[in-house]
Write a protein that binds this DNA or RNA. Structure first.
Lengths: 343, 343
DNA sequence: CTGAATATTTTACGCGCGTAAAAAATAAAT
DNA sequence: ATTTATTTTTTACGCGCGTAAAATATTCAG
């Protein structure tokens, strides 16, 4: 490698003995040129290390080979995992993923959409903030850019939504908890940022009614994305007031549960299902850390692989269909219960 | 907003009543045009929502206004936090950050460097994987692109390194632990991915010698980035074998400690500093979750704000200096001890 | 070997913007 | 009002690549 430096595709074409339009065709789709030609080009790439100028490549293309990936909050390892899978799949399919995090801020989410527009991406995988999102901005964006929403749905926006079936989360945990002990009280933020939270509360109420049990919803204060701290504060408040309606708590999500478990530990409430325990705690999401809480957290797990995999596949289909589906698709994957020590 | 659609800078210049070269100058640096001109351009931007084509802008520029940000592992919330600060500062300074995660894979790290090269960034903030990094590839990259390393140093590469002073972490925890109880044994991976781990072990040995105490290093098996699981397995092994040389354990980092605490809980070892406790556990990093372990984790905290802030400032200085410093800079920030319940 | 089908080369133009140089306009200072 | 310094306009070219059309070459069946 590393003979003389190749400046542009013209030079590269001449040293590789192929015409520039054919080289251009190759870089757009390697399978579109004859196998022998492809081999010669690839040998020359190996030898000279040439890569076309991506800016020049993209300036005339109406849509590029870029895929935008937007998540609401990167400091949540849940999204870190999702992003890893998505990125790999995009690269394998010959796209260049660009990653953005709103970091919990609606302003930043709007700015990201602006930036994305000028990236002229072939498509976007977008997990919105939820309640705080600027709906109008997102709607306008989705009209111009082929977008698949994931994780958090906003009714009617984007060409498709891929996420988890909140009802399946809650029905499994509620059923399990009421079968094996006292029925659960539901522990959540009063003003949750994420629309999944509302679906989960409704599913809880619905399940309790169906089972003929009395529901208890514990709504705690706090806004923002520091769920662990909110869960801990709310937990301390409830525990110190002795305001527990039952000895079983079902948290809306694992990050709240992590905070609650910390509050239980601090106040000397033993959590678990043994006879010596004071209360049971369960939750939803199968957060990467839920295995390491004390006690380890019984939770309902996302079908991580399918949610991220199907999001990507849906986006690829959308791109191939020219950016529009006849009807908006919604795909929900079921959760599965993970029984650990906390309940 | 939203009169007729502006197709390019030519059209935009004509509707805003300014010549195209001046408009171009404005977008390159708004302060480089007269205030009245700037106001007219900005009014027109507001009215027509025009944004220049970034691909066309960048294709001729030798270096763009992009800044590459590379982290080793996004599912670690530590990096999520760092990234948030870095992104904000870059945007404020008029740069466009592009975020990449190696996801623990050296191959992916190499691919990212390739991608970055073709992005022609003004500069790169790079937290390498560490031991597994392809040193030759990184060295070649740093010769071509102005790069500031952070978090994890690789001797001699990049124009600067900004990180935490591992000695200051360990000296504070070791001093505190030996002052308030039995001296600590050091708990770490046998083959740590990150070079900071080696510095910490050496600092531990050094401190113990200085204090005239006998050192104990517990090296556990396991490779990869699933530190919690590695810490838990290693912890279970040691606890079940009753192989603890002392009742105080100092973990190399918080993620190992999270796993170890989980092992302690499972095996019924009570952690904390009370008389009823079996052992003390402390650690380093002040991981975002260390506040919520059970018990909450005594640890030494990175100076997050300074590490990320100074990384960005150093890169800006580097860019202004034309991409080269006379001598490689190394800046280390001290840790501060955070006393919580575990030790 | 021939013809049809497919792939490549030649030629040529355009995209949206950067940027250089000279001319013209504007602002600031005397 | 005049000079001087600064800013803007005019004019013009080039960057690296996409891509269309026509000419030419290669492959493959039969």
């Amino acid at each position: 490698m590393g003979e003389r430096k190749i400046r542009n595709m013209e030079e590269f074409a001449s040293v590789s003995g192929i015409s520039r339009p054919t080289v251009s065709k190759y870089f757009h789709d390697p399978t579109s040129v004859r196998a022998t030609t492809r081999a010669r080009i690839e040998a020359a790439i190996e030898q000279y290390g040439y890569r076309p100028n991506i800016y020049a490549m993209n300036q005339n293309r109406e849509l590029t080979k870029n895929i935008g990936v937007v998540v609401p909050y990167l400091a949540d390892p849940f999204f870190g995992e999702i992003v890893r899978v998505i990125e790999r799949r995009c690269i394998e399919a010959g796209f260049s993923p660009s990653l953005f995090s709103s970091h919990g801020s609606p302003e930043q989410e709007r700015d990201i959409l602006d930036t994305l527009r000028s990236l002229k991406p072939a498509g976007v995988l977008f997990a919105p903030l939820g309640r705080l999102s600027d709906k109008a901005a997102i709607e306008a964006f989705c009209r111009n850019v082929p977008t698949v929403l994931f994780d958090s749905n906003i009714e009617g926006m984007g060409e498709a939504f891929v996420g988890s079936d909140n009802y399946s989360f809650v029905s499994q945990t509620v059923e399990y908890l009421s079968r094996t002990g006292d029925p659960a009280a539901f522990f959540e933020m009063k003003f949750p940022a994420n629309p999944n939270a509302n679906k989960r509360r409704r599913a809880y109420l619905d399940m309790m009614e169906r089972l003929g049990l009395e529901p208890h919803v514990l709504q705690i204060e706090g806004t923002g994305w520091a769920f662990e701290e909110i869960g801990r504060k709310g937990g301390l408040d409830i525990l110190n007031r002795g305001a527990l309606p039952t000895d079983t708590i079902l948290c809306s999500n694992d990050r709240l549960a992590i905070g609650l478990l910390s509050a239980c530990y601090e106040t000397g409430h033993k959590v678990g299902r043994g006879p010596e325990c004071d209360l049971r705690v369960a939750s939803h999401d199968d957060h990467p850390f839920s295995r390491y809480t004390c006690p380890s957290l019984t939770t309902a797990a996302h079908d991580y692989a399918n949610v991220s995999g199907h999001s990507v596949e849906t986006l690829f289909r959308l791109i191939e269909s020219g950016g529009r589906f006849e009807a908006r698709e919604e795909t929900l994957f079921s959760a599965h219960l993970i029984m650990r020590a906390s309940a």
